[in-house]
Design a protein around this nucleic acid. Structure first.
Lengths: 233, 233
DNA sequence: CGCACTATTGAGTGCTGTCAAGAACTGTGG
DNA sequence: CCACAGTTCTTGACAGCACTCAATAGTGCG
């Protein structure tokens, strides 16, 4: 006998493809979309070169995506938290060009390409589209953020955006989880490790934030927003 | 009597939702998706604040997307050429946060949200997904490009990526159209107008490119690739 | 407790942003 | 066809910030 759909008691049920579904549809959704086993830190969700047979929704934990340049350097292109979509870029060619790894013990649900018509039929199509739109909107925010020349503005912008994402998840927007290393974060933000460290030190000294290795507490969100270039209210 | 589908003789037929369809399916596609009337330069495809009832595929010409920050500055977030998809970010909330304007006389096809199940039924679903993947992949390329600290690298990376897009369109990858102003391009690349101008002057002096106001000719693609950080072959 | 790794702090150079002026192009009207 | 005005683009000088190299301090793990 089939177990009841895992989606019924998924922590991200309000955010992902399950949004707005009744219990019957949830069961159907559970037929297509199943969470992965818990993946330890550094485990690959997919690797550059893998066939891209779909995309993923983060269920718990966090992931990063990165590409390796021709000269062997790593370029971190995204961080993904519960309820967020990743892996769409692979659909362009049917092959992933980036890799994705877990930043901590994490789970993700694979959305198979061939199940997408089914998803539309059970009422998850709009949610999928919304998630894709979110991914692209986040990309636009990141573009604006990276186009800032001041490192302080890029860091502040990252924190503001991260706070928004935490709020969207229903989590505390004043205690931001930093599951990635300083190296990864600096790489993502287009600055050196040293520069990021200095910026965090400056922001801490100014009492806007306080930092630990794995968390940044925001004390003055409005000051951070003033430092960053924010597009929306 | 209904005119035959405009898709039959669309210049982007191989690139957009019509890819791989037979003439019957093309006709059905033409029922959902119709090109806009030619839009003059600076005309809005959509404005920030508009309801997002779908997305768009560029049919001819070129568009830019941009957002206005809280302080009133413009931030250019993307340029779009024939066969490329734009406007997905609006699906996140049902409202566009960016605006899109034509960079020259242009046409675009609107893809309505409610037509997407139909698109899947006639075999365009995969193409739509592929276009979305392309958009996201381009976003990742741009992220890597913007995270370069040297302005030369960012400009070279932009040119390399643009050449790739032109090749994908079947156009000459050595004569790159530059339909946007220097101001827009500098803004997009996260540098000042003056800096962009200097970089272009340096690259010209080194005989890697030659520039006119509306076109950049690439003379040494391999040298440009060496300057840029390229992820793929 | 010691080792390896990660993060912070310090000093000097180079590139980009800023401010400012001049040149080239575009479109209009005579 | 040319003159003109407005815009767009290019070039120059200077200052500030981030990158590089280098050393120190802190963390986690065996």
């Amino acid at each position: 006998m089939m177990k009841p759909s895992q989606c019924q008691d998924c922590p991200t049920r309000q955010l992902c493809l399950a949004a707005g579904l009744d219990s019957h549809a949830l069961e159907q959704l559970g037929e297509c979309v199943r969470p992965s086993a818990p993946m330890p830190r550094s485990a690959f969700l997919y690797r550059a070169g893998d066939a891209a047979e779909g995309c993923f929704v983060v269920r718990s934990g966090a992931y990063k995506t990165f590409a390796i340049s021709a000269s062997g350097e790593e370029y971190v292109t995204g961080f993904y938290f519960p309820g967020e979509l990743l892996g769409m870029a692979g659909q362009a060619s049917g092959e992933h060009r980036e890799s994705a790894t877990a930043l901590m013990t994490s789970t993700a649900c694979r959305v198979r390409l061939e199940d997408i018509p089914t998803l539309w039929s059970i009422g998850s199509g709009e949610s999928l589209l919304r998630l894709m739109g979110q991914t692209e909107r986040l990309g636009a925010d990141v573009h604006v953020n990276l186009s800032q020349s001041r490192a302080d503005a890029r860091v502040a912008g990252f924190l503001v955006t991260l706070a928004k994402r935490m709020r969207h998840q229903g989590r505390d927007a004043q205690r931001l989880p930093i599951p990635m290393s300083r190296t990864d974060l600096a790489n993502y933000l287009g600055m050196t490790l040293e520069c990021l460290s200095r910026v965090l030190a400056r922001l801490t000294k100014a009492k806007l934030i306080s930092t630990t290795r794995t968390e940044i507490a925001v004390h003055a969100a409005s000051d951070l927003e003033a430092l960053a270039t924010h597009l929306d209210a």
